[in-house]
Amino acid sequence: MRNDTHPTTRTTVTTRLRRSRALLAVTLAGLLVLGGSAAATAATPVPKPSVPYGSRTPDRAPGYQGQVTCMPFESRGAKALRDLLRRTYGANSGGILRPCASGGRSEHKEGRAYDWMLDASRPADRAKADAFLGWLTAKDASGVAGGNAQRLGVQYVIWDTRWWNTWTKRWQPYTGAVPHTDHVHMSLTWDGAYKRTSFWDGWAVARIDHGPCVATEGMLAPRYTAPNYTPCPRPRPAG
């Protein structure tokens, strides 16, 4: 059979076919990238605030507010943080409370810390931790580093041998006895513990709650009953 197609025509058809295939390949690659990005985003979401923010800048960071008393009940803010993580990332079995007689100093004993049980060696768990902690500690919409932590009232976090806090705004090595490779520890300020921060109501706290005050060194402070907006005086020496 004769092939009467002109060589120029055959070249033109071949060129068009190649261009069509290349365009199809680029289009499919783009769809795969978009689909992969959407899947990754869907797999690692970040929390959404309860209401629109009425304050452009986040709540003030009070600095370290360590354990001073003992209150064996879960604070509103710690329970709200636990529920927020469950809604965003799925069920988890983390805990808030710790017995007052257990060793060490911990905001768990005041009901204002939460342990989010994740395994640093599992990629799915690490993706959740990275997504949440990245959102928590990076610059927020107003450009403030750690602004989302301040809006939630989170004063510091510990995860996988590192920790971050609102007074230095940087990750540092954590050398405590527990490496925190099986959970993310989050401690709340007193305002965060009582759900008074802008993540929940939209408005940044105007006055810092300093919590109960220790009267004598080495002694526990009275239980928290109401906000304290006056910085605590230095405790009296023991004895």
Score class of each variant (00 low, 15 high):
residue 135 W to E: 01
residue 203 W to V: 13
residue 58 P to K: 00
residue 151 R to T: 02
residue 53 Y to A: 05
residue 25 A to M: 08
residue 1 M to N: 08
residue 193 A to P: 11
residue 204 A to V: 13
residue 167 W to N: 07
residue 190 W to M: 09
residue 214 V to W: 13
residue 207 R to Q: 15
residue 32 L to I: 15
residue 235 P to Y: 04
residue 96 I to F: 02
residue 214 V to I: 15
residue 49 P to R: 03
residue 61 A to Q: 13
residue 95 G to C: 01
residue 163 W to S: 14
residue 213 C to F: 01
residue 172 Q to H: 04
residue 21 R to Y: 15
residue 78 A to N: 06
residue 64 Y to L: 13
residue 42 A to P: 03
residue 118 L to R: 05
residue 46 V to G: 06
residue 196 R to T: 13
residue 87 R to D: 15
residue 106 S to Y: 05
residue 175 T to A: 12
residue 202 G to Y: 11
residue 104 G to E: 03
residue 137 T to H: 02
residue 175 T to Q: 13
residue 105 R to H: 14
residue 109 K to Q: 14
residue 129 A to D: 02
residue 217 E to T: 08
residue 89 Y to E: 06
residue 50 S to P: 00
residue 65 Q to N: 08
residue 153 G to Q: 04
residue 187 S to T: 02
residue 152 L to A: 10
residue 222 P to C: 09
residue 155 Q to E: 15
residue 2 R to E: 10
residue 111 G to Y: 04
residue 88 T to D: 12
residue 6 H to L: 12
residue 69 T to G: 07
residue 124 A to I: 02
residue 37 S to L: 15
residue 176 G to I: 04
residue 97 L to N: 08
residue 71 M to S: 11
residue 85 L to R: 04
residue 128 K to I: 06
residue 175 T to W: 05
residue 235 P to S: 04
residue 27 T to G: 11
residue 131 A to M: 12
residue 176 G to F: 06
residue 233 P to I: 10
residue 231 P to Q: 11
residue 167 W to I: 02
residue 196 R to P: 06
residue 49 P to K: 10
residue 157 V to Q: 01
residue 118 L to F: 02
residue 65 Q to A: 06
residue 138 A to R: 14
residue 24 L to F: 11
residue 62 P to L: 03
residue 121 S to Y: 08
residue 203 W to Y: 13
residue 92 N to Y: 01
residue 220 L to I: 02
residue 19 R to F: 03
residue 96 I to Q: 01
residue 116 W to H: 03
residue 44 T to I: 02
residue 98 R to T: 13
residue 121 S to V: 04
residue 33 V to H: 03
residue 189 T to M: 10
residue 56 R to K: 14
residue 92 N to D: 09
residue 10 R to M: 09
residue 147 G to N: 09
residue 232 C to H: 04
residue 21 R to P: 05
residue 37 S to Q: 14
residue 154 V to R: 00
residue 143 G to D: 06
residue 95 G to N: 12
residue 210 H to V: 04
residue 199 F to R: 01
residue 100 C to K: 07
residue 152 L to M: 12
residue 113 A to C: 02
residue 30 G to T: 09
residue 49 P to C: 10
residue 198 S to H: 00
residue 75 S to V: 05
residue 83 D to R: 11
residue 48 K to W: 04
residue 87 R to A: 15
residue 20 S to E: 14
residue 155 Q to Y: 01
residue 166 T to P: 04
residue 160 D to M: 04
residue 40 A to S: 06
residue 186 M to H: 03
residue 33 V to T: 11
residue 239 G to K: 07
residue 102 S to M: 05
residue 77 G to Q: 12
residue 131 A to G: 08
residue 42 A to S: 13
residue 77 G to N: 10
residue 176 G to D: 09
residue 220 L to M: 14
residue 80 A to C: 05
residue 111 G to F: 01
residue 56 R to E: 09
residue 209 D to T: 03
residue 14 T to C: 08
residue 58 P to W: 00
residue 91 A to F: 11
residue 81 L to R: 02
residue 142 S to L: 11
residue 150 Q to S: 14
residue 200 W to Q: 07
residue 184 V to F: 04
residue 16 R to H: 13
residue 162 R to V: 07
residue 186 M to S: 06
residue 148 N to I: 05
residue 107 E to F: 03
residue 140 D to H: 07
residue 12 T to N: 14
residue 32 L to V: 15
residue 233 P to C: 07
residue 102 S to A: 15
